[in-house]
Nucleic acid binder design. Structure first.
Lengths: 193, 193, 193, 193
DNA sequence: AATGAATGAGTCTTCATTCAT
DNA sequence: TATGAATGAAGACTCATTCAT
């Protein structure tokens, strides 16, 4: 399996660094190869083409989000607590890897539509897990019975995403993880008194 | 004033059509010129460079959102109702101009970081007006006193934006404006019972 | 019409020189552009791609052969004399333009199959004119009634082509046009006593 | 001797198949290795480089033509009959191995000039044997005393080659060997009555 | 004000060959 | 002998921008 070979991960990690430091459009394959310490051609032994590197970056790293979330779902806690832990996990992973945060929140969005559609397909798994939390909460009667799952999911994800992007754009100058509580409260209770 | 000359608007409108139909990366200056019915060189009599066209597209069209919102703010209604009208306005403008929706939600995001930062600067005006609603609501005691304005703004904008993007990606196949009520309720009351 | 613009012919002529002097595989577009005294990009205002340059070289120059041959066919002379003049014309055109001779006899044959098929399609016109001479000769009873036109055409063209290629490979060191008489005699009478 | 080891022939045969099926420019060393059932590196234990494989393909297979022709020359028959048998042999060998015919008539000609010059050197042996037939015929007074040997050789070879190439390009759709008699007659008697 | 022909910088990918095992 | 992972050089084409008319 190619994904288990050391060079595969080496190139993925190099790509994240190069993209974070140079920006999406200034991240030539040769630059990634140099950062990874391999020849240009070696890249093509592990990836079909440049797009494939980018997809794989996303795939590999999204796995962390999804895997963590799956663990959370197994815990014997309320849906509300699960939501809390999900937000916290999302913030923690990105706060602990700013290069990755820059890449996912800013750079990868400059890719063309075709690539973004593929990225969305990967994201879908993650969002489906979020749906599970929401459904569970409704069944528990923790969450409003009348809530539209799709809209709720869009609010939760949109809020997390916008919050993270703002944090990156403000050059990480405040504590992202520290916002978990407030974000969680907002999503649960809204802004009204 | 260049902006008042007919060719200025002619080129802006051509740009929206070309980008919506061909995608960001397939929207060459020559294609925009052709759609606008002018020579390639003529573009440069009205715009400094290609980036300037795109900025101007955003500027011109964001004005509609901001202008409408300013009107709403003048009305003698509750902060909650203002928020409702803001969401409705946002959805209405984009639902009535699908080309524009595709361009702002999908295509323009493929632009480079520099351009996106400038776009964000334009967006800021709009978000500042949103802040005004939130502050007013807090003063009125309609909204929670403890609410973090920045987070609340990110939730409101993140939710609206994510909802709209999903609608575009789903090829406009449901009624966006019809979601206003539900979105408004979610933002105000959250998802809890 | 692009073909009538001076730069079109300028690029064609440059291509012949570059290919003759550097060989097919060492004739980069940039080299042709430099020889033609234009920018690389200018090439693409006149030709669809590199292959199109090569096709056009052949097309433009084959026209000379075919046009001359059409003139010969109009003359009021025997089929045998027409054949003589055709061979002479073929030899004269190539002997007077060694760059062109090198390109058609050696370099262009290294092109890929697709290109060679297109070149053959152009050649077909020329060979059809040759068929006309052969048919006329048979009707006149100058040529054997039993002669298979296709085979005769292949012999005539194969012999002319092989003779010319040998002359090029021997670095033009003998007089090609001077061979006309002998080649003509061989084709007419064969090698027997 | 390397040439006697089984892998040598194995690779030669693999090369013919791969080139015939994929075309010259799509016949990578790795593809030939795979077809031969050896590792890429193994190729280089038997051949100096890629060009050497191709030269060897030609060398090995031309031997059949030359060996057969040498047998014919030993026979106690007229020069004219020897020429007949030579043509027949040429057609038979290629008609019975269409892969080889495609490779020699179409694909190998796309090689670079250096390779083609080396191929011509191999061909020279064959053509020298042809010269022997022609000289014998002149001494016998079967063939015209005044015939220019080089030109006659070029006519014979040019005609055979052109005929074979046409047959390949026409996808072998007629009987090549069946043309022997007519080709022989044309070469001996020409096209005149 | 308007034109549009000309410019030229910039990059992904392939594949023959090597060499440590 | 045999392997196959790794190397790295090399080139066609696009398109934003200019400027002579």
């Amino acid at each position: 399996m190619k994904k288990d070979k050391p060079k595969y991960k080496q190139i993925i990690d190099a790509a994240i660094i190069v993209i974070a430091e140079n920006g999406y459009h200034q991240s030539q394959v040769s630059k990634i190869a140099k950062q990874a310490g391999v020849a240009d051609g070696t890249i093509y032994l592990y990836f079909k083409n440049k797009e494939d590197i980018l997809i794989s970056v996303f795939e590999e790293k999204m796995e962390v989000f999804a895997d963590n979330l799956k663990e959370i779902l197994k815990e014997n806690i309320s849906a509300s607590d699960k939501l809390y832990k999900m937000i916290e996990n999302h913030f923690k992973v990105l706060a602990s890897n700013r290069h990755l945060a820059t890449v996912t929140q800013l750079e990868l969005r400059q890719s063309n539509l075709a690539l973004r559609l593929r990225i969305n397909a990967i994201l879908k798994n993650y969002l489906t897990l979020l749906d599970t939390i929401l459904k569970e909460g409704i069944e528990n009667e923790e969450f409003e019975n009348s809530v539209d799952i799709r809209l709720a999911r869009q609010m939760v994800f949109g809020t997390i995403d916008e919050t993270t992007t703002s944090w990156v754009m403000n050059e990480y100058k405040y504590d992202l993880v520290g916002l978990t509580e407030k974000v969680h409260r907002l999503l649960l209770k809204g802004i009204t008194t």
